[in-house]
Design a protein around this nucleic acid. Structure first.
Length: 211
DNA sequence: ACGACATACCGCTTACATCA
DNA sequence: CTGATGTAAGCGGTATGTCG
């Protein structure tokens, strides 16, 4: 632990002591006398639950542990022993609490990350759909323009009967515009996704991912 | 360098307390 | 009373440091 962190921690402890002046003596008197931690469950046949009652840590103990955890997620042996003495707990209980707390922290972080990625993915899908729709519209415009050009060519060919057939006219007669872009069969997908967004908005997709 | 041992940590699981 | 949920703690495995 760095010295600045130590100072920060000492400040926090001072504040806590201000709010809970007799926290340590209370905790020690309650837990130190009769709540000795003991091991249980040697195996899963129910051998050793001899009168054991699981004790919940007091709010003050949890607050203190939480304070230490915010300061540093891992314990060195010295800090563990000192904290255990301060809280009237077994050092092993402190270690276990920190381990469980790290697990909770990790799973919470994972959930947050999952939500963030889910949201990003939803936005990306939405954007992709918009872009695909745009591509379709542009292809339609291109097709229309090409048809008009074809008409103009036919007109001019009719006016001068001896005009040569150009390679250009042959090219523009090729019908499958979408095929050239590898977009075969996607028209219905575009329409479907577009309709879904139009009808339901992004909330629909968020619910969809929650399934 | 190497193996034995201790220690800390992690993931998974169990058992208990609490609450709706 | 009961099932769901939160959490303290047990257990086995792994990584790392120390010592002879």
């Amino acid at each position: 632990m760095s010295s600045s962190l130590n100072n920060q921690f000492d400040d926090q402890m001072a504040v806590l002591n201000n709010y809970y002046p007799d926290i340590y003596t209370q905790v020690v008197s309650v837990q130190g006398s009769e709540m000795k931690p003991r091991r249980r469950r040697k195996n899963n046949k129910g051998e050793s639950s001899s009168g054991f009652r699981k004790r919940k840590l007091t709010d003050e103990q949890v607050n203190m542990l939480e304070l230490h955890f915010q300061n540093e997620h891992k314990l060195d042996s010295e800090r563990k022993d000192r904290l255990a003495a301060e809280l009237g707990l077994d050092p092993r209980q402190v270690a276990v609490w920190f381990q469980n707390r790290r697990t909770r922290y990790k799973s919470k972080k994972l959930e947050e990350e999952y939500s963030r990625l889910k949201s990003e993915h939803g936005n990306a899908v939405f954007e992709k759909c918009q872009l695909q729709t745009e591509v379709l519209k542009l292809k339609e415009r291109l097709s229309e323009t090409e048809r008009e050009m074809q008409k103009l060519l036919e007109k001019s060919n009719g006016a001068s009967s001896n005009s040569p057939s150009s390679s250009f006219s042959a090219e523009i007669m090729e019908p499958p515009f979408l095929g050239g872009f590898g977009m075969e069969g996607l028209e219905s997908v575009f329409c479907a996704t577009e309709n879904i967004y139009d009808t339901h908005g992004m909330g629909y997709w968020n619910n969809f991912y929650d399934m």
